[in-house]
Amino acid sequence: MVYSVKRIEALAAVARISLRPGEAERLCRELDTMYARAEVLQDTAAGENPFLETVLLSELREDRAQPPLPRETVLRMAPATRDRYLTVPRAVEE
């Protein structure tokens, strides 16, 4: 067993995902299976360069200022707003 409940909970914290009761135990088994499949990567010689030709060949477009999405459109998509802003819980303690 590579994965323990503690490790799954640590990963979930990094990934910012809350888990239901019993979910970490199930994920231990499932991620162990995925890890075992990935272990075969250690069994073979690899190529020299991990970079992809397609990425190397792609050109970045010139930076151009464009009108942003209208504020009301952005706010319409948001789950919670007040006045002209998105709202979230207070992140800095008083």
């Binding site: 990963l11 979910e23 995925m34 991990p50």
Partner: peptide, 29 residues
């Protein structure tokens, strides 16, 4: 969730070199 957690683990600590970078090299091969 399963894939996000697995993917997160593949990018963390020693796993990054053992799995993620290794997979990139094998992809190039």
């Amino acid at each position: 969730k399963r894939r996000i957690l697995f993917g997160t683990d593949m990018l963390l600590g020693e796993n990054r070199a053992r799995f993620y970078v290794r997979a990139q090299h094998i992809r190039e091969r």
